[in-house]
Design a protein around this nucleic acid. Structure first.
Lengths: 224, 224
DNA sequence: TGCCGTATGACAGTCCGATGACAAACGCTG
DNA sequence: CAGCGTTTGTCATCGGACTGTCATACGGCA
């Protein structure tokens, strides 16, 4: 049905929640620290993450930001702190939902379902996108140029995927900053720099840029 | 930034929330009944809907189900009822989030942002406006003449889009200044200059201007 | 013909995108 | 946990494209 990663330092809560989630039909995996959670999500990505805010070592906010850099997994904060300030901070850090302890399992399950419904609809199952001699394989985390794999960094890859998911459509720097970096605001030159780096890797022709196009005043687009 | 439809029967709450949302930068529109809300969403879709559960006539749950049949707009329940049963029912009916009254505006704003961030990834919908051999593709930031892309600057593009959105309708220089440049007042000759530049690019025929017409004393129009 | 509104070409200031350099952060390895 | 190569974000700079203004030429209409 689905897998959930629970990052929560209180042993009792962690155990009872994992059990409750498994009763609801999820494959649940619990860890006690943010660091462990990040490792777990990197090696074996769950498709939803629950994270407590009060954690030893790296706190929950930082954990959320780091998770966002790993992938676009839906994140729900589960915290005892119920003041508006924490809720806002959690959501701004990149969480999708915030639930206050003590947790009603039925509510948690319903929120999980709602979030997964939304996240699933948003993720167009793209297995491969081809732009002339350029292929993007999101599942495999690979980019090929004329069939040959090209070494691309994670950020470059995310950027390319984002562009590839909307072929021929202009994406503004602002949109790209939000979707690739998760920034609400930020220096838009950052996008330029990464586009430039990407171009060096995926466009060998010294002539006009073929696929990764600049649309002056609007943004960038990837076209066939 | 974004538009929000608020379905809430209590006048005081509705008004204060719409105002608060507008302070946050949203275009907010409030209605008092589910029926009105459905009509509003059908005629002029907002990109997020807030709905109260206790409504006269059609209740909130049914309203959510109906909204879901209209489009895939993100929905947040705003309700005074805080028991798990209602939360679960609201989310199961198709809502994306559930917030309990009294509402902390900052939290609502944060939840709106989180939801929109998540929901934004979808929505392809490519629209094309065609005028004979001239095509305007707003999504792609592109203009084509006989299928061939034409290099157009940002201002020219905006101008063309504005004209293309009202086919056959005369737009005054004042209207164009306002909509393309955002100027309340300004030198109307500016429009002429850009129309001229645009014509050179999209009309190769040395004869009579075919699509981008001057209407003496009134303004310009784009016709098929 | 005279008038008023429109078209056009030139120009200088400004804006925008590309790029290379650099320092900090990261992540892998021993 | 220390070291090292890689990746990332910031910055300054450059060249070119774009924009708005102006002066002037054109053209329809009374």
């Amino acid at each position: 049905m689905g897998s959930v990663l629970l990052i929560e330092d209180d042993d009792r809560i962690r155990l009872s929640l994992t059990m409750a989630l498994e009763d609801e039909g999820y494959t649940a995996h619990g860890v006690a620290t943010a660091e462990e959670g990040l490792v777990a999500q990197r090696s074996d990505p769950a498709d939803t993450v629950l994270v407590d805010l009060m954690l030893p070592g790296m706190d929950g906010f930082e954990c959320i930001r780091q998770l966002r850099r790993v992938d676009d997994v839906p994140i729900i904060v589960v915290s005892a702190r119920d003041d508006t300030h924490d809720i806002v901070a959690g959501l701004e850090a990149g969480a999708d939902d915030y639930i206050v302890k003590p947790v009603a399992v039925k509510e948690l399950a319903a929120r999980l379902r709602a979030l997964r419904r939304r996240a699933r609809a948003a993720a167009p199952a793209m297995t491969v996108a081809a732009f002339g001699d350029l292929e993007v394989l999101p599942e495999a985390g690979e980019v090929r140029l004329r069939g040959e794999p090209v070494a691309v960094t994670r950020t470059e890859f995310r950027l390319l995927c984002e562009l590839a998911e909307h072929p021929g459509q202009v994406l503004s720097r602002e949109q790209l900053l939000q979707r690739v970096w998760g920034y609400e605001i930020g220096d838009e030159r950052l996008v330029d720099v990464h586009v430039g780096r990407l171009r060096h890797k995926i466009e060998e022709t010294p002539g006009a840029p073929r696929h990764l196009m600049t649309v002056r005043g609007l943004g960038y687009k990837l076209q066939r």
